[in-house]
Design a protein around this nucleic acid. Structure first.
Lengths: 177, 177
DNA sequence: TAGTGCATGTAATGCGTTACATGATTTC
DNA sequence: GAAATCATGTAACGCATTACATGCACTA
């Protein structure tokens, strides 16, 4: 499980055979919210994993358009399960520029500082809208895939709610007429 | 505001003069939860900012131990305020391996999948303990610095709570005697 | 026929961490 | 006298994104 993309590739292939392009597309509407991956990582990784026998590729062109479908091998499934069960510290990292601004908001007049909370609220409301769109997409998801989507929605709602509460608490900003 | 460390350095110096070492130490018990910074970024950045006139350094050795204190210049304060008010997309990125595992947990037997939720819960409970320690540290924080600490505690509690609820919902795991 | 989506791939770039080097001071 | 902490700094490395190159297929 050497690189950070390895689990995403193995995991998505555990849900069914896919091409590199489809892996990227799936990442973009699912894991990218908490685990991003780019073409520059995916394609080299697919070849590496094939070389190691964890996945196998099969040419499946659409007409004259080249396309290569990958599927998990039994060894690949074992590697995925081993990763899911492995011990050791899990990376959980956040990089949140909005929060950083709020952290330093004492450098601003009070109303401008509240504006930062307003902005944060708006950001999460926009994310929430996008998550609802994804949720409305047809097709069943496996239970835990769905659970993580629920998490995304609940978390995003919590963030927006938190901002709303703080805005309330810190006094209605002196809105001009 | 060219690099990612710039706002942290300017922001922390807006709270009072500090050395590079102290900036790193402050980051490690405050912003690192949502905005990390390493020596490899901080020291070069301090010199760059001094060259640009946004901060100024003053030698303030402790005995024979070299030490250089930096403080914000008026231009630096303006740059900080400009950044706080600037428009454009804010980076908000999450990298959460625990969530990634839960996302792919359908590959495991149900009880092992629940184990992943248990692990996530424990992780956030540990973070919460560390945040409470930081909270108990003596000294007043500026209002918005404190607000972000409150956010950290509330958010972490929410995460642990969410795990607890899902564990409840998905059935008590068949705990062996 | 022009634009968008499907499909694969890589080179360059930038960014940030890790690890190391050095040395003084305080604490046990 | 050893270990931890204060203090500054950089080189190497790895990782991930960005941008580009290429070409087919479908649709408006």
């Amino acid at each position: 499980m050497s690189t950070a993309v390895t689990p995403v590739v193995l995991g998505l292939l555990s849900l069914g055979p896919r091409s590199g392009y489809e892996i990227k597309a799936t990442v973009d509407r699912s894991t990218r919210f908490f685990w991003a991956a780019s073409y520059g990582q995916i394609y080299p990784e697919l070849r590496r994993l094939e070389g190691e026998g964890l996945i196998e590729g099969e040419d499946a062109p659409n007409g004259a358009r080249a396309r290569r479908l990958y599927r998990l091998t039994p060894a690949g499934r074992e590697a995925l399960e081993a990763w899911l069960r492995s011990e050791g510290r899990l990376t959980i990292e956040l990089r949140d520029e909005s929060l950083l601004r709020i952290f330093f908001a004492d450098a601003l007049p009070h109303d401008d500082a509240l504006e930062l909370l307003e902005t944060r609220k708006r950001i999460f409301e926009e994310v929430l809208a996008r998550l609802h769109e994804i949720d409305a997409l047809p097709g069943e998801d496996p239970p835990f895939v769905d659970l993580v989507l629920r998490w995304g929605i609940a978390y995003t709602e919590w963030e927006a709610q938190w901002c709303a509460e703080q805005l309330q608490r810190l006094g209605p900003s002196t809105t001009p007429a």
